[in-house]
Nucleic acid binder design. Structure first.
Length: 723
RNA sequence: GCGCCCGUAGCUCAGCUGGAUAGAGCGUCAGACUCCGGAUCUGAAGGCCGUGGGUUCGAAUCCCGCCGGGCGCACCA
């Protein structure tokens, strides 16, 4: 029986005993794991609070319960300790045998679909390490939910019509030629030529190979130049309005080459840029960046199911429908006077969450008739929950096309976007008649939005909209998975400045704080690909220095695994509502409380069995041999590792409930630490006492399997063959 | 002003629904097997868990006040 079931069975036994002995009505009983093995494996502290009610000493209560309870067979004995803790000791041999024979495989999800939205990087520049926190947390959530048996759909929302994309387009069309040329690292030349050069940097395949001199890196250079220009020259903002207008009007299927040609001609002749061509360029910018982001995330083993595009939400009238629903529900009103005159606002005054606000209204439609981001997000959220419906009940839906197929060799291997089979990644389009056979997107029973904490307010508004539209349960099931931002330590900022030769112009006050906020607009940040490269190079060096004469190929694969392990663990181990102050030294550490420490434990354990097979012809303990361990005497230290291995289900459940994956990271770290200690105290290979050697093999077999599953399937951290 | 979050060892952080001696890592100091990889392990030093109250048999954990820091309260996303 798995530990989780033993736990509930024992809890039920206690509840029954309380019912029988004290005429209580089936009280709710929870068991915990006591701090040390000498105190047992499960504990019930419930006698203590009952003492007052029952007017008996807690020890007496615990004794009565202990005697009356019908314990499941896995409970070997019970003990009363301290002021009245009821401690349960499990049958160790039986548990060990069970862990060796039960398969770790989880049943394929058959329940209601859960939608997880994460990554969501503005497609106007390269991803930085802050985006990695989002993607890694989102990905671990997805892995945990799937592990618990839920079907999950992963969406990466693409804001392809926003101001940020427009700004890059403004840059290419209006920044002085020499600035564009410097971003492109070419000689200054005509706008026409620069435009062509810019477009030629667009990724060619569906998803390019990751690189730090990619299209998104080019945009990373251009974007801050534009925002700086806005500050110097407010008139420059007029160009932004022009581009946004063009984007809104759409490009009507214009060919990109043709668009670039007409833009070039317009520049050469001094004519205004044609609207459709501007819109087409904006689409290319968003699309190009999106593909680069997918490539970056692929390195970390992160893949997706759907790429919903904001442009399609607009084109398909999602907002129009949501607007009607909100109007019919009386949730919004048009202001005729005051500061919001001419706007459609959602009143939040009646909602307790907003009651204390100065201005409890949120503008959804601006006075110029355009929709705010929050408005669009309401429509999108309704769609995700399957609630955006026509009056006759049919779902308002996107059109879909295949974007790419991807696969992963192992659960934590890099995602590869080649081939015609594997996981299907779809993107939305604006023709609802185009569907992918056998696929339904959206319509989730539950929705997680992985978005940083600074967007808590708009997220609350979105949720409130779902509620007032008559779906309070759905609102409760739409969850904002919020996390704090990633910032840079002043030391990290200085290092970047030294390395790039740039100066971010931060004053002394800013540099004296414990961290500095990243800013894409100002170009302050550590690019994800760049950092992964540094990590990988560092790992490669470490691998090479240890390889010795057996240093054969595969160094790149190992280095990648170690880099990903270090990064993912760094993101996972810190609790989510704490600012992560990024420091190079800390992030590049491979010793101590790090990903590589965990990986090393798995590699080391696997190595035992490789050597064992080679020298003694013995491998891991298989099911048949496991039976012989039923009655084995297992010392406390070995048993501690076994019991800890049995707790995965409990820990994963807790992590998902609290959205606190530091619990999972710490659990894995615990296991690794326990193993490393035992490694020294319980050698396997040189042990000639056969039953003893078998017991150690058995315990380490459980560990190797558990650790690999924890790292690769749940944390997405690959276990290399060698380190 | 209102709301949310953070304050735990010199530094960076864990501590789940209150539970049995507050845990890691880094750093410091002292050590480790001719034996499964030293990215390891052992030991030492280092904490009125920001502060003052309260609830409780029991509080780092829950409630209230205060202090310090961060974020949010846009016709930006």
């Amino acid at each position: 029986m798995p530990l989780q079931e033993i736990r509930t069975a024992a809890a039920r036994a206690i509840s029954d005993a309380l019912t029988g002995s004290f005429e209580m009505e089936r009280p709710h009983v929870t068991l915990e794991v006591p701090p040390g093995r000498h105190l047992g494996d499960l504990a019930w502290p419930g006698a203590l609070p009952l003492a007052k009610v029952l007017r008996q000493s807690p020890r007496r209560i615990a004794e009565t319960v202990a005697a009356a309870a019908q314990w499941p067979p896995e409970v070997a004995r019970v003990e009363i300790a301290g002021p009245g803790f009821l401690n349960l000791f499990l049958d160790r041999g039986r548990m060990l045998a069970h862990l060796l024979t039960s398969s770790a495989a989880q049943p394929e999800g058959a329940g209601d679909k859960i939608v997880v939205e994460h990554t969501n990087i503005n497609p106007n520049k390269a991803a930085h390490i802050g985006h990695l926190r989002n993607a890694v947390l989102g990905d671990i959530l997805v892995r945990c939910l799937r592990h618990l048996g839920h079907p999950v759909e992963v969406q990466d929302y693409i804001d392809d019509t926003g101001v940020q994309v427009a700004d890059v387009v403004v840059g290419v069309l209006y920044l002085p030629e020499q600035e564009i040329a410097s971003a492109l690292a070419t000689e200054p030349s005509s706008r026409e030529e620069l435009l062509a050069a810019f477009v030629s940097r667009l990724p060619s395949g569906p998803v390019p190979a990751p690189s730090t001199s990619d299209f998104d890196d080019l945009c990373w250079e251009i974007y801050p130049k534009v925002t700086a220009r806005y500050e110097d020259d407010p008139d420059f903002l007029g160009h932004r309005a022009e581009v946004l207008h063009a984007v809104e009007a759409g490009h009507d299927g214009l060919d990109l080459d043709e668009a670039v040609f007409t833009l070039g001609r317009a520049a050469a002749s001094g004519h205004p840029y044609p609207q459709r061509a501007i819109a087409r360029l904006a689409t290319a910018v968003a699309d190009g960046n999106m593909r680069c982001h997918l490539a970056t995330m692929a390195r970390l083993g992160i893949g997706y199911d759907l790429l919903p595009h904001e442009s399609d939400i607009l084109a398909l009238g999602f907002w129009r429908r949501a607007f009607e629903l909100l109007k019919d529900a009386g949730a919004i009103r048009k202001e005729t006077e005051g500061k919001n005159a001419g706007c459609w606002v959602m009143s939040l005054a009646s909602s307790p969450a907003f009651a204390d606000m100065d201005d409890p209204d949120k503008i959804l439609v601006r006075s110029n008739g355009t929709v705010t981001y929050t408005g669009k997000d309401i429509a999108y959220q309704l769609w995700k929950l399957g609630l955006l419906r026509e009056p006759d009940g049919t779902r308002h839906d996107f059109g879909y096309t295949l974007f790419a197929h991807w696969r992963q060799e192992t659960p934590a291997a890099p995602v590869e976007y080649c081939g015609r089979s594997g996981h299907l990644l779809a993107r939305t389009n604006s023709d609802p008649s185009r569907q992918i056979y056998g696929r339904e997107y959206g319509n989730g029973r539950q929705v997680y939005n992985v978005i940083d904490v600074r967007q808590s307010y708009p997220q609350k508004v979105v949720r409130e909209a779902v509620r007032v539209l008559g779906h309070p349960e759905a609102a409760d099931r739409s969850i904002h998975f919020s996390y704090e931002m990633v910032a840079l330590t002043p030391a990290a900022v200085r290092l970047i400045e030294a390395r790039t030769g740039l100066s971010f112009g931060l004053d002394e006050e800013a540099m004296s704080k414990s961290y500095v906020e990243m800013s894409g607009r100002r170009g302050i940040g550590v690019k994800a690909d760049e950092f992964l490269d540094v990590l990988t190079a560092q790992a490669e060096e470490a691998v090479a220095s240890r390889a010795g004469e057996e240093g054969t190929g595969g160094t790149a694969v190992r280095a990648r695994a170690i880099a990903v392990g270090a990064l993912r663990y760094l993101m996972a181990r810190q609790s989510r509502n704490r600012v992560l102050a990024f420091d190079f030294d800390e992030a590049l550490a491979f010793e101590g409380d790090t990903g590589p420490y965990l990986q090393y434990s798995a590699v080391r354990a696997a190595k035992i069995f490789a050597k064992l097979t080679e020298r003694r012809g013995e491998g891991m303990v298989e099911a048949a041999e496991a039976e012989t361990l039923q009655n084995a005497e297992i010392p406390d230290d070995l048993w501690g590792l076994v019991l800890e291995c049995a707790r995965r289900r409990e820990i994963v459940g807790q992590a998902v409930d609290t959205l606190e994956f530091s619990l999972l990271a710490q659990h894995a770290h615990n296991l690794a630490q326990l193993f490393h200690k035992l490694y020294h105290a319980h050698p396997v290979l040189p042990e000639d006492n056969e039953p003893l050697r078998r017991l150690r093999r058995a315990v380490f077999t459980v560990f190797v399997r558990e650790m690999r599953s924890l790292l690769e399937e749940l944390l997405g951290i690959p276990v290399p063959e060698e380190m």
